[in-house]
Design a protein around this nucleic acid. Structure first.
Lengths: 192, 192
DNA sequence: GCTATTTTGGAATGATCGGTCAAAAATAAA
DNA sequence: TTTATTTTTGACCGATCATTCCAAAATAGC
C-alpha cells in the first residue's frame, strides 16, 4: 500500500558509503549526499534516520561487503606463503583503492574516535575479527609444527594486525609498493 | 609604535594546537578558538591569517616542540635495549596522552590527506625524520657488528616506523599496555 | 597634546550546516 | 471512485560556519 519507493535501499547506501569513504563524516554534507544519491532529502531521512545513523549503516555495509580479506588463501597454503600472499594483496589493495585512501573503518576510527563510541565499537569489532582469523591460522600452524612452540599465536596475531595498520599509514606516507613489501618481509621474518 | 598586543604568539599557538589536536581541524570552530585562546577574533585573523594557516602553524609547532621521541636513549644504549626503551616510552605516551589520542601528525594525515597536500607534506616529513633516526642507529649497529650483515637498515627503519604507526591504531583499538608491549617484543624479534 | 599606527572587541556578513514541514504524487484497499 | 497510506519534492528552519567591517582603545614619535 502507499506509493512505492523509487530506489533500492542498498544501492543508495553503497553510494553513500562511497562518499563517506572518500570524504569522511564531517567532509560529507547532506547536500552532497542528496546530490550524489539521486534521491530526495526527505526520502533520505525517512529511510536512514539522520546523518550519523546513515554513516553507521555505511560502516556496517562496508564491513559486510568490502572489508573482507582473502582469508581462504591462509587456509589453503602453508603459513608463511599464505601470510605473504595475504599481506601482498592488502598492499596492492591499498595502492589501488583509490587515490590513497585506506580501510574505511580505520579512517572512521581516526576521524571519530574516541568521540563516537559506536564508531569505535565497529572498528574494534573489525580488529578483533582480523585478529581471530590470524590467530586461528597461527594456532593450527603451531599444532602442525610449522610454528615454533615458543611463539604465542595471540601475540603474533596482534602483531600482524598492527603491521597491517602500520602499512595503511605508511602507504599514506607515500611509500611505494616495493617499500611496503619490504615491510611485509621484515614483519614475516618475526615468525622465525 | 601602535598599540602593543596583549598576548604572546607562541602561548596562543600552543592553546590552538591543543584544541586542534583534541578535536581535529573540522571539529574545531573559530568560535571554539576565540573562546579558549583568550584573544579576540580579529587579533586571531591578524596574527595567523585564516583557520587553515593557523592549523598548519599548529602542526609545525607540534613537530618542533612535542613530536620528539627520546632519540638520545637510542645512541646511549645498545641497539635492542635502546629500541625497546624507545618503543616502550612511545606506548606509555600513547596511553597517557590523553584519553586515546595519538600523534597529532598522524591524526592530521588521517583527517586531511589526501585532500590537503600541505598536511600530507608535514606528515611525510615527520615520517622521514623518524626513519632517518632509526636508520642511522641501525647503520651504526651494523657497522659495529650488533646487527647481522644480511639486514638492510633502511628496510628495518621503515618497518619500525610502520610498527610505531601500527601501535597508534592498535592503541585506538583498545589494546592495553601489556598487549602493546607484546607487539613491540615481536617486532624487535625481527632484528634477529 | 597631536598624529600616525596598531590592536582590540563586537557586531555583522553571506554561506552552509543538519534537519523539518507541508503539499503534491502515486499506489493499494475499499 | 473514494479513501488511506506512503513517497516524493522543494521550500524552509534556526544554528553555526569562516570571515570581514568598523569604531574604540592604546601605544610611539613628534
Amino acid at each position: 500500500m502507499g506509493r512505492p519507493r523509487e530506489f533500492e535501499r542498498d544501492a543508495v547506501l553503497d553510494r553513500a558509503l562511497e562518499l563517506f569513504w572518500q570524504r569522511g563524516f564531517d567532509g560529507t554534507s547532506m547536500a552532497d549526499l542528496v546530490e550524489h544519491l539521486g534521491i530526495g532529502r526527505q526520502s533520505l531521512y525517512d529511510t536512514f534516520g539522520d546523518k550519523r545513523a546513515m554513516y553507521l549503516e555505511a560502516l556496517d555495509r562496508y564491513h559486510a561487503t568490502r572489508a573482507s580479506l582473502p582469508w581462504e588463501v591462509l587456509d589453503q597454503h602453508p603459513l608463511r606463503p599464505g601470510l605473504r600472499t595475504l599481506m601482498t594483496s592488502m598492499v596492492d589493495w591499498l595502492l589501488e583503492s583509490t587515490h590513497g585512501r585506506s580501510c574505511m573503518l580505520v579512517a572512521a576510527a581516526a576521524e571519530r574516535c574516541p568521540a563516537d563510541a559506536e564508531v569505535g565499537a565497529r572498528f574494534c569489532a573489525n580488529t578483533a575479527n582480523i585478529e581471530r582469523h590470524l590467530r586461528q591460522r597461527l594456532e593450527r600452524a603451531r599444532a602442525e609444527g610449522d610454528l615454533g612452540r615458543h611463539h604465542d599465536p595471540e601475540a603474533l596475531a596482534r602483531f600482524l594486525t598492527s603491521t597491517m595498520y602500520g602499512l595503511q599509514l605508511s602507504a599514506k606516507g607515500g611509500l611505494d609498493r616495493a617499500a611496503l613489501l619490504q615491510i611485509v618481509d621484515v614483519a614475516l621474518s618475526a615468525l622465525g
